[in-house]
Design a protein around this nucleic acid. Structure first.
Lengths: 239, 239
DNA sequence: CGCGGCCTTGAACCCCATCAAAGCTGGTGG
DNA sequence: CCACCAGCTTTGATGGGGTTCAAGGCCGCG
């Protein structure tokens, strides 16, 4: 990679970086993305970008910040379905009159824009398709975590997933990344209580798996941790 | 519905019934489906229709029988991701060179056929889109089950989901349906041990929620059970 | 009649939940 | 610059939901 290309990559928006990593984008796709990102809006943390059961007006792209897809049971129990990171698509459906199947809440202030139509370019359509396949793969991973992993394994696995996904958008350096989640939010995605997450995190730190100070997380030895929790890199298409 | 239309509906294949319920099919779609179903093949129970990490040759339609998507951890722990029922799609992706993200195992002898291309008709494409959206909604439901429900609630919820899905294909009469699952398979989808599933099933029977004799399951009062486990009908598009 | 697969039962244990309270930290205003 | 406060993290004690291990019972089938 040339120095100028690097600079471009650094300055490009997260959606551009992510979708560009998923499929080779042509000029039409790049232009459409740049245009879309230019008119992005910011929502406050805790605001709801989509509400379960409500119609989806337009699919969105996360430009900056974190969000989560959540479901709430009638008695108040809350489960996070997945995290939405910069570059991720929200509510991209192909059926008519789509309804949101989960509520999307902003974890940090979140900047989003409307996702350009797939019609814009075959390259963009391909990128969307891969993105969608990845989304589904991560849902499966979440199911396995919740169904068959211990608390400690869940924590290691979800952190490795975040590392993997943030790497794709270029937000990781030295196995270290910004982590805006509270322990309570982690517990909501891991199907645990905040108290137990706290204790297991302490153990993970004590045993030297991870470092977590302030809002920065470092995974000490990603390869070793991956083999410990039985994790393999997520792949949805043959090279 | 006229009597002849009913007869047609009864004699139609499961994919035709299900996809026809998801979107109004035109003649092109119906013909393509009929043609595809005509050349279906049967796999023995326990055989693997797809293997995690392997390329997907062609998307399939389940014509008859049950299968499951599964993931196995290195140490042998197994988690079922979802059940595949008659009329369901398997491995329908839009990216190039797709890889299977889970293993598909036959629970009963399973008859499948290649899924006709979406190019065949806009109606078929619409049906596929709705089917896909439903699949995702059921994945979310599974995540909530595993993350935030008690064992008893998980059992009630998954049985209601099966009732809902089988109703769509016309395989339910009087809240009763054929249930080829062993308790071990149920435990694999519910993230529990077979022993505990057994005990909770006994409780569910004792308290009169369900009846389960041989391979037939009856849900005594679906509406009451739904409100008890906090379940709402799955909807992915506005009317 | 025997056998394999599935269901059932018992006892002991442990992981994680629950409830409650105390420490910490970063941001805000005086 | 300090005091204050809200939100987050940490800690302790206790209890329960689910697991584990092991054995026994049932049933359909060859």
């Amino acid at each position: 990679m040339t120095i100028t290309a690097q600079l471009v990559a650094q300055s490009a928006s997260a959606p551009m970086r992510r979708l560009g990593a998923l499929a080779e984008l042509d000029a039409a796709a790049a232009n459409a993305l740049e245009l879309a990102v230019a008119s992005s809006v910011t929502d406050r943390a805790r605001s709801e970008l989509q509400i379960e059961g409500q119609p989806i007006i337009s699919p969105l792209l996360v430009v900056e910040g974190w969000a989560a897809r959540a479901r709430i049971l009638p008695d108040g129990r809350r489960q996070f379905i997945s995290f939405l990171l910069p570059g991720d698509l929200i509510g991209m459906c192909y059926q008519e009159h789509p309804l949101a199947v989960a509520t999307v809440v902003a974890i940090t202030p979140v900047r989003t824009c409307r996702a350009p139509s797939a019609e814009v370019s075959p390259a963009l359509r391909r990128a969307y398709a891969v993105s969608r396949a990845l989304d589904e793969a991560y849902l499966l991973a979440e199911i396995v975590r919740l169904g068959r992993m211990t608390a400690l394994e869940r924590i290691g696995d979800v952190l490795l997933e975040l590392l993997e996904r943030l790497t794709l958008v270029g937000l990781v350096g030295n196995a270290t990344f910004e982590m805006p989640l509270t322990q309570e939010m982690l517990s909501d995605v891991l199907g645990l209580t905040p108290v137990h997450v706290n204790r297991m995190l302490q153990q993970a730190r004590r045993e030297g798996w991870i470092e977590w100070r302030g809002k920065r997380v470092t995974i000490r030895n990603p390869v070793a941790l991956a083999s410990m929790v039985g994790r393999v890199p997520t792949r949805v298409q043959a090279p």
